[in-house]
Design a protein around this nucleic acid. Sequence first.
DNA 1: CAGATTTCCTGACTAAGGTCAGGCAAATGG
DNA 2: CCATTTGCCTGACCTTAGTCAGGAAATCTG
Lengths: 301, 301
Amino acid sequence: MGAEQINTVRRFNRTVSARVGVLHDRFLGRDRPVGEARLLWEIGEHGQTVRQLRERLGLDSGYISRLLRSLESDGLVTMEPQPGDKRVRTVLLTDAGRTERAVLDRRSDELAGSLLAPLNAAQRARLVAAMAEVDRLLTAATVTMEAVDPRHPDAEHCLRSYFTELQERFEAGFDPALSLLPDAGELRPPRGLFLVARLHGEPIGCAGLKLPPDAPAEIKRMWVARHARRLGLGRRFLTELEGRAVGHGRDLLRLDTNKALAAAVGLYRSCGFQEVPAFNDEPYAHHWFEKRLDRGGEWQG
Amino acid sequence: MGAEQINTVRRFNRTVSARVGVLHDRFLGRDRPVGEARLLWEIGEHGQTVRQLRERLGLDSGYISRLLRSLESDGLVTMEPQPGDKRVRTVLLTDAGRTERAVLDRRSDELAGSLLAPLNAAQRARLVAAMAEVDRLLTAATVTMEAVDPRHPDAEHCLRSYFTELQERFEAGFDPALSLLPDAGELRPPRGLFLVARLHGEPIGCAGLKLPPDAPAEIKRMWVARHARRLGLGRRFLTELEGRAVGHGRDLLRLDTNKALAAAVGLYRSCGFQEVPAFNDEPYAHHWFEKRLDRGGEWQG
DNA sequence: CAGATTTCCTGACTAAGGTCAGGCAAATGG
DNA sequence: CCATTTGCCTGACCTTAGTCAGGAAATCTG
């Protein structure tokens, strides 16, 4: 990345820390410590376990306990042991807590309004559009990708969501029993691998790579959660898998897909995959693609 | 502004506080308190007075004094009384201070890099462009406009800069003695007014309005500092002055300008000013404009 | 069932951030 | 030239944020 880009980002960081960051905290925590306000916010409508809060906010267990005690003594939250494991405690908002949270909500609106207020309509529209773009791309930059075992809870969560979505989108529904499904062993080293993408710890996408000893590498079960689309994750999965296939000495990558998944078909084409005749009997596939991998080259998604 | 806009801004605030705000502070202040790091940064190459630092950072006088004492005892800054007013003290970086500041500088680069790193080239370019836009518009939203006496130091600073620029840009230079210059009395209530635009307290633009009892209202000496252009300030000045003219019961606004100021001419046209025959003998004017003001209407810049 | 582990809580402690009242020296205004 | 104001500094004090070590209860493991 160029020095000019770095400078723009620096100017942005500076302006935004001053205009948004500081105000954000001051606004939110006007009559209570910022820590408590953030906590109150994170508890949300449906309650959270102490553990979840600790992970979200990245705070010390003792510290968070103290904050909760303070909110509790102000009558904003109640705590109750979780049925099933009485060590774990669930935090719930009381009515007063909900009211207080609504105040934070309103302040957040006010802050947003105060940023737009001095601008005219045309400037506002441009600012909002640019903010949406920054938000989208910074979010994309926060997504992590990690190889996990296909039996990992996050992996299974993604696979369930994937099958559910296929069922909804395929004209004739989707019955796993009829499909050529790789078993978990095929997507686990040494016979393959399975990637999970996460945003703030939540699984939001997956992709498997089969590395059969006697056939070309093959991409299976690529999926991205609905709310995480348009972040370039599909392209990033492909880039990542291509790199890993090359790392395993492969020079050909292939995949099959269904015509209902138009966006995916477009993605494969734009990433350099060529349509080829069917190379398997997958009943749910309408298109088969392959891409020759350049072993010495570079991959820029 | 719509609820959709507010929501986009809120999402932006949230993402950006988490990704930029927090990191910004942690990065900068890795081995010294954040307050000291920010202060060290603000002192800059050329030194600052204590007062300037206090205003920039919005901190208590006692607190800032203490921070300075701490930096001084670490050998990073020296303080010396200002010649002319020995109550005022100027803070200067020592060599050690400059070195330390360079470290902060490098960290700031690293942070910027870390935001871009996970993205591919196309995404990076889009993110940087959107950040520049957000930066520009948030900066624009931070500019304040205030009516001041034309003898106010900030007003005089703007006028000096204005004349200097005319001298550079007019083909034949600019000699104030030949021009029809309003004296300060004409740009001060009740015979007129004078606006100064400021960014972080620094004057960055001005515009005067003459309100002669026997002639139409007239705009004089509108100027925007070079580094503050493209923020929509010219348009904002015009909107503000139109509103004030209407407030004084006027229904016609006029102005003259020089052909060398092409951007200004374009601005006047796009804001609804019509070119008219010369209404004065200003030797430096090539264009004369007027705009009829709608007394009951709305002005959206 | 004994021992280890997990989950949350408590007490003790520290650093950082920040406010407030007053004080001294220099400058300013009658 | 005296009273007031300005600019900065100091001491006393407070809250918030955060860490660390250990402890009680529930749960898991062999």
